[in-house]
Design a protein around this nucleic acid. Structure first.
Lengths: 347, 347
DNA sequence: ACGGTATGAGTTACCGGTAACACTCACGTC
DNA sequence: GACGTGAGTGTTACCGGTAACTCATACCGT
């Protein structure tokens, strides 16, 4: 072994970053006083505070968040477990969560999912717990949040960005939006509206389908068989090819904008003009939607609001002292954005 | 004051989560031995290890990562400072970083930018430093990474996902891709290629423009004035409207796919067919690009590879003992993806 | 039989903060 | 003048791990 120990016999605490005690020594006070200054404790004289701050500045002292976390039991970090953060929805929510967290002086630790399974979500949450986060926000995709939460200690604050009974949750209204979308098409004179659905193991997909169906039945319109598929543009494209062959199809409600994009391409290739011959409506309002050909009429989900609200909910729980109140549920409304992919039915 | 102190006089350490010492007591060993078991220290007999693990399981003991971080000086957390994580590029990189980090048993703490300014990046990096991260990955947008790094302590491992001299960096080749794109169009018989550029204060935008220009001059083709704008589809749309009016425009290279999307819409609205009359080529290959109308020929950037490589670079630095080696630079190649928005020039 | 060494485990100190409590004054009150 | 009070500060212990060092024992070769 070569002697690689460089740790010289310094006058105590020489090498590393300065600590509370170094500042204290320099300022001629106790380390506790320095601690008080950095906690904004009221009972510190202005004079002392100034001395301490001067010493701290001179040493470029920065309080060690980890030591603080150990002593206080709070890491001021919240964990986010998310489904594919590459997608616009999750990415927007995570981004909004982080932004709000930053404003509240919290950090955000993100853990992605190895697979969209219950096990994977539970594992991710567990890792986060081990890391000492003060709370967790779940963006579980189609994994039922309630089941995941069962494996977590009940004292850990959790918010789900998905429907849930046993934990606080923030969700977008999945019923009124589809309703408005279908009504919009019906109002334009379409006798019915077809539905390119999302994967039926997703609650969102089921809710949107229900909204679509309710609007149709409420208007006494026939309810065509929904066309199943996944959330992708590729799936929308495949379904669009089939839909394009059916001349009776004049209006389609897609379960999200990506499906709508695929639809648009298939319709375009089949020579069926949008919106003149077929109206298409999406869901989400991704930033690109306004520049589809034609610009897509769609139902806007405010992902950012969702993220912000979920964080607020979580911080409430973290701040709450006593018994965990009944799980709060926030529902965010949607907004129909009419652009140019919908038009009156040609008579 | 009502007596809210519920802290009952328990047999020592009653309330909170079990610690090393609780496990030790139950297993009849010293706390250090328990620590050894959880560190996978080799010098623990199989028998003792089993006893400890049994006790730990019984107590549902989980080592406290914060205490460990304080003792070891390493939090096994890396920080990511990123430009708008709502965008596909940054989102993909962060996601890939997190995935790789997870495999290496690291956590990722993401901090977004309040504004895309040098100050903001430096502040974010500073916050992360205060939180005790083991290293930082910078996705600084157009903010020069080198300048940000100057304010950071030289011992902190940093990797920039942007061109940089003074720190390790991982970037996509921004020259060959545009070159290939333009060559592709020239090979199709176009006499020249117009360029809907990105914002010129971005290095990427400048490099892509340079690649475009180089390809043109190398082929002896005339170099039209590049059309400036930002990265958005809206900007692409505006420029597309102008380009559509000029019948001499038969091929356009857009600095990214969003611009191309806007271009496509404007061209479509002006009645100029793509690719029959005008070829359009993008950059990035966002997932939607394959379903644009028509599917977009574009230059693929492998954001995920970028993220993975940057993390590998960072872990190398964290693992490296002695002097910081010369900053490594990784360049990831691009790939031209030919779809249907490009076609031979009509003669 | 004896020193040398590897193995397995324990003891004590320490990481850098915070919390609880003790202490010293200055001040106001009766 | 004794005493209660509150502001400002210091002392000591503790959060839950790890590191360094110590120690007892077993095994080895000679």
């Amino acid at each position: 072994m070569t002697n690689e120990r460089v740790r010289t016999a310094e006058p105590a605490r020489g090498g590393g970053r300065p600590g509370l005690r170094d500042v204290a020594e320099l300022a001629g006070v106790s380390h506790q006083t320095v601690s008080r200054v950095f906690k904004d404790h009221p009972r510190v004289s202005a004079e002392t505070r100034a001395k301490v701050l001067a010493a701290a500045a001179q040493l470029d002292f920065r309080p060690n968040a980890i030591a603080r976390a150990l002593a206080t039991g709070s890491s001021r970090t919240i964990g986010v477990v998310s489904f594919d953060t590459t997608l616009f929805g999750p990415a927007s929510m995570v981004s909004a969560i982080e932004g709000s967290a930053r404003d509240a002086d919290y950090f955000v630790s993100v853990v992605g999912l190895a697979s969209p399974s219950r096990r994977s979500v539970a594992e991710a949450a567990d890792r986060l717990r081990g890391q000492g986060v003060d709370g967790i926000i779940l963006i579980p995709g189609h994994v039922p949040a309630d089941q995941v939460v069962r494996h977590l200690p009940p004292v850990l604050p959790v918010v789900a960005l998905a429907p849930a009974q046993t934990v606080a949750s923030a969700v977008v209204d999945q019923h009124d939006g589809p309703l408005a979308a279908v009504r919009h098409l019906l109002d334009l004179g379409h006798t019915t509206v077809h539905h390119a659905a999302g994967p039926t193991d997703w609650p969102e997909a089921r809710d949107r389908m229900r909204g679509w169906r309710d609007a149709l039945t409420a208007a006494g319109a026939p309810v065509p068989e929904p066309v199943p598929g996944d959330w992708s543009a590729a799936s929308g494209y495949e379904r669009g090819k089939a839909l394009a062959l059916d001349p009776s199809v004049t209006a389609v409600f897609a379960a999200n904008d990506h499906i709508a994009l695929g639809l648009l391409l298939a319709l375009h290739e089949a020579g069926r003009r949008v919106p003149e011959e077929v109206s298409v409506i999406g869901f989400d309002d991704i930033p690109e939607a306004a520049f589809f050909s034609p610009p897509l009429t769609t139902v806007r989900q405010d992902f950012a609001a969702l993220g912000r609200r979920s964080l607020a909910l979580l911080l409430d729980q973290i701040g709450a002292v006593g018994a965990p109140a009944a799980p709060a549920g926030v529902v965010i409304p949607t907004e129909l954005v009419v652009r140019r992919s919908t038009a009156p039915r040609r008579t």
